[in-house]
């Protein structure tokens, strides 16, 4: 267990920045974002940055490959490997979310190289939570303000600085770069850093595992979907949503194949060239999103695909969010 004084944090990030791109929480127009850090004030007092860790490891748009030439002579190059990066300031729920989607990308018969390479080039330095927002419900999802899952290094903020714990080999290596800035933590420091962890919402959420037989045709989904505006706010902010589309962009004789986030709530998400659409109705799309997280993903991975970060709760313009659905499902089942 190490300790770093709060004043030394910028020095640490600056040092890490010599070899890596560093991201840190920075306030932009009043809200905190994990942003490329170039010496700005490191924001504090936030519950969760607007963008989750996902956005930096699984960027909204990235190149899969580059191609060049005409139709009879084309050369294809894989996209260049990502530069090393260190992300400071994400929250444990997001780190867990990142690990959750890492399983999707790295398990199974195919490994998603784009994700793997970037994840491996990334060191995640998570800061445990000192406060919870009314929208936080990580405990309901089996996590806590200091969960270790998905983090390389975990920072516990205390009054004078942070208690620092490396959780992975990558974490240890990165801390080696910080030699001189870190001290061994005293017992007192450790005690004080750990005692103030908040208690996010847990008790009144019913985490149910809904299976298709139980609730697929329940009128609840229609009721829920009427409210939905079919925007992508929830999925784009969600740390565990990972749907993408692939598309080509060309400039003259050169082009790139890009991979970009997509959203299962958009009506054309499943529209095929011939006009077939497997989920043409809003009800089907809304239901699929929640059942994916609560039923389908657990069927494949043994865990629900939600970490209780609360972003959908805070940002859905019409409060169509996971916390609500979990509450509702409890009632729906009882009904």
């Amino acid at each position: 267990m190490k300790f770093i004084a709060a004043a030394k944090l910028p020095l640490l990030l600056e040092r890490l920045g010599r070899h890596s791109q560093v991201y840190a929480p920075v306030a932009v127009d009043g809200r905190v974002w994990l942003s490329p850090w170039t010496g700005e004030d490191i924001a504090g007092g936030y519950v969760n940055p607007v963008n989750s860790l996902k956005t930096l490891v699984y960027p909204q748009t990235e190149a899969v490959l580059e191609f060049e030439g005409g139709e009879t002579d084309v050369t294809v190059r894989e996209a260049s490997p990502p530069a090393p990066q260190v992300i400071f300031g994400g929250r444990p729920c997001d780190a867990a979310g990142l690990d959750l989607i890492a399983r999707v990308f790295m398990e199974g018969p195919f490994v998603d190289e784009l994700f793997r390479r970037r994840r491996e080039a990334t060191t995640i330095m998570t800061v445990a939570c000192r406060q919870a927002a009314p929208s936080c419900f990580c405990r309901a999802m089996g996590l806590s303000p200091a969960s270790e899952r998905g983090s390389d290094v975990l920072f516990f903020p205390g009054p004078e600085g942070y208690l620092v714990e490396a959780l992975t080999e990558a974490g240890e290596q990165i801390l080696e770069q910080a030699a001189g800035l870190l001290d061994d933590a005293t017992g007192d420091q450790a005690r004080r850093a750990c005692q103030e962890l908040p208690v996010p919402l847990a008790g009144d959420l019913n985490t149910v595992r809904l299976t298709p037989e139980e609730g697929f045709e329940h009128p609840y989904w229609e009721h829920l979907a009427r409210r939905c505006r079919s925007c992508g706010t929830c999925t784009y902010l969600c740390p565990t949503c990972y749907c993408t589309a692939l598309f080509d962009v060309t400039r003259g004789t050169r082009g790139r194949r890009l991979r970009g986030w997509d959203c299962c709530q958009f009506k054309d998400f499943l529209l095929m060239a011939g006009g077939h659409n497997a989920r043409p109705q809003k009800k089907q799309r809304v239901r699929n999103r929640f059942l994916h997280k609560l039923s389908y993903h657990p069927a494949n991975y043994g865990e629900q695909a939600c970490v209780g970060c609360g972003r959908c709760v805070d940002n859905c313009p019409v409060c169509l969010h996971m916390a609500g659905v979990l509450k509702d499902l409890g009632e729906v089942e009882r009904a």
Binding site: V104, F105, G108, P109, F110, D112, F115, P212, C241, Y242, C243, T244, A245, L246, D262, C264, F269, L270, L271, M272, H276, A278, N288, L291, H292, S295, Y296, H297, A299, N300
Partner: peptide, 24 residues
Amino acid sequence: LELKMQCGIGKCGRCNIGSKYVCV
């Protein structure tokens, strides 16, 4: 079956029918 597919390798989250992915 045929559903809209993007990645073909079970990562793009698109071609699911329940918990099954048509591509995988």
